[in-house]
Design a protein around this nucleic acid. Structure first.
Lengths: 187, 187
DNA sequence: GTCTATAGTGGGATAGAC
DNA sequence: GTCTATCCCACTATAGAC
């Protein structure tokens, strides 16, 4: 973040809007207006247009979210307590400001995976990053490597699914219930 | 299905395309072309336009998918075997024809939940139907009602999440791994 | 019920001045 | 680096003939 230049302002605004509205519903005009970036500079920074902007937006979201996961997990040494605490925090934040965030990566991934291989790849890398944070925490805590990898994939899937259902139904219950299953899953 | 009239042809084509490409990427022209329905009859059957068509498409998908879940679960009386078998089937089908299906409801839900309350509600009802099928199976098998409801929500979340990640990363591994956790979850 | 034509809007992208 | 103007296209939706 720090001293945000025009390019950074465009990307951070685009990340937020793509996550909230999806790829096709988010117009370049809206991004330029909301970012208050100098108009007309979009194709200077992103010569490949909307697709390139979306790719870099996904990459920014991936870094941002995986850092948040990592911070969350570092708050407790026990992996069950840590992961559960992280998901509980997500559920709490979700309740407070449901409309202001959206589901990380998912909308862009669903809309573009079949039409843009590059964008699909960016979403894949993002998901692998999320999984990896959980997996590393489990390995640190003594879990066998293969099992830790499997659990990373499962936890990430559960979390994305719970976000999706929570977002659609407007209640944080799915997130809360997924959190509740973590001890069983990690036993 | 049976004797498909024009309206049914339009809806079933729309369901497939919305699921595959999302709401905003699917144009009415494409739906009319692929459905081979008489052109121009769209606004005769759907006077409220694209939004109405999407709502009815989501409802059709909801019925279709929940029936498939129910059939799948009826193939074994033991709930662990039944649910695991169902998810394994999904994983197998996913491997065979990844591109031909997409993730049920998810794309439309993510793209429209914040802009169309009616459409959001239709997606919510769809998800509740899915959950309900799992919950009923568990209650039949002797699970306590509240626990069955909670597990229905969790299983549905896991499944949608695993579909999303499988779809994006192009491997059915998330679905397989989620299936593998079912015995632990239901113990 | 079905069709054609078209209105009207907004999208992404480009050119060229400064 | 930034801005304006503009092109072209696709979209949703409507009007009106048959």
């Amino acid at each position: 973040m720090e001293k945000e230049n025009s390019k950074d302002k465009i990307i951070s605004t685009a990340s937020r809007l793509f996550q909230l509205q999806g790829y096709h519903a988010t117009g370049l005009n809206q991004i330029l207006k909301e970012s208050e970036a100098p108009k007309g500079s979009l194709y200077y920074y992103f010569p490949n247009g909307k697709e390139q902007l979306a790719i870099e937006s996904v990459q920014l979201t991936a870094r941002f979210v995986s850092e948040r996961i990592e911070e969350g997990l570092n708050r407790h040494s026990d992996p069950v307590v840590a992961i559960q605490g992280f998901i509980d925090d997500m559920a709490k934040q979700f309740q407070e400001k449901r409309c202001s965030e959206g589901v990380p990566i998912a909308a862009v991934a669903l809309e573009t995976s079949l039409t843009s291989e590059e964008l699909r790849k960016a979403c894949q890398v993002a998901y692998e990053k999320f999984q990896d944070v959980f997996t590393r925490k489990l390995i640190q805590s003594g879990y066998e490597e293969n099992r830790a990898k499997e659990l990373g994939i499962v936890i990430n899937s559960m979390l994305e699914g719970a976000f999706l259902i929570s977002f659609t139904t407007g209640t944080s219950k799915p997130l809360q219930l997924v959190s509740k299953q973590i001890p069983v899953l990690l036993q």
